[in-house]
Amino acid sequence: MERKNFQKNYLINFIAVLFLFGIIVMSLQMKLINNYYQGLLIIAGINIMAASSLNLAAGYMGQLALGHAGFMAIGAYTAALIGLHTNLPVMAKLIVGIGCGGVMAGLFGVLIGIPALRLRGDYLGIVTLGFGEIIRIALYNLPFTGGAAGLKKIPKLINLPILFVILVLVISFLFLFVRSRHGRALLSIKEDEIAAESVGVPTIYYKVYGFAVSAFLAGVAGGCLAYFQRALDPNKFKFMLSVEFFIIVVLGGMGSFTGTILAGLFLAFINEFLYEVDELRLVIYAVLLIVVMIFKPSGLLGNREFSLTASGRWLKRKLTEKK
């Protein structure tokens, strides 16, 4: 396909996103979405953001990363501390806070990525899992994180439209990033590390690179969480949160960001019904996973993406066929 076609696609998607944004703003204004549902949608959006970041590491790069709740926590606490202790105008605070949260998480991604990414499969899973728990324990004990009580009265800087914009930026970033030489290098690592190295892909460099980008975005999701919930405590970032992200990724399809979005919305929706039976939630997740593994092991969308323009072409073909 030619450059012109791509640019047309980008434009169509941009207009569609703008349209969706308009709908969100209008329905808030007309009070079609009450505060409760706004909150649900924001949480769903944050989970989608974190799961998408995990999808980069797990789906695109094929690395079993089980510590994303840890990166999210780093981003959340960083953003919260900036929110509490600086005197910036609201918008600047939002950008600086979330940006620093992402960068801090990304730095930790590099730090643990360098030793950990030499390990494969289960071993990497165990190390990243351990990392997530260490972060949580550290948050209990550090002098500036408020211990078990956590941080309170964090400024509320996130509402649904703002979160929507950040989510769109994150997803667009991921889409554009994976369709580049860097993204192809990550894919080649997932496919066959030895072959990737044998055609000149410095695999360790790219693994750390991809892992750091993934951690950065998880940190951004954490920052959003801090600025929405106004209170943080270490128990929000338990190992089960990492598992939840993983479930979203697997349900949606490893390597499909649109799949992650769909699965994230779906899980938010059923969570709403499972609210009453919280203990049963994990059982139901497990059943869901088993069902998916039996009927569609590659997840909802496999490694494909939902594409507006492709669906448009498909619809057009169907319509002309009928005539």
Partner: peptide, 29 residues
């Protein structure tokens, strides 16, 4: 040892490491 789930042309593009120099920023923008 091919990249089995990628297209033929992507298999080759990945090997053009020396040819492609653009930064991640120019890719994203």
């Amino acid at each position: 040892r091919l990249f089995k789930n990628l297209t033929v042309i992507d298999n080759i593009k990945i090997a053009f490491q020396k040819e492609l120099k653009y930064s991640a920023l120019s890719a994203i923008l």
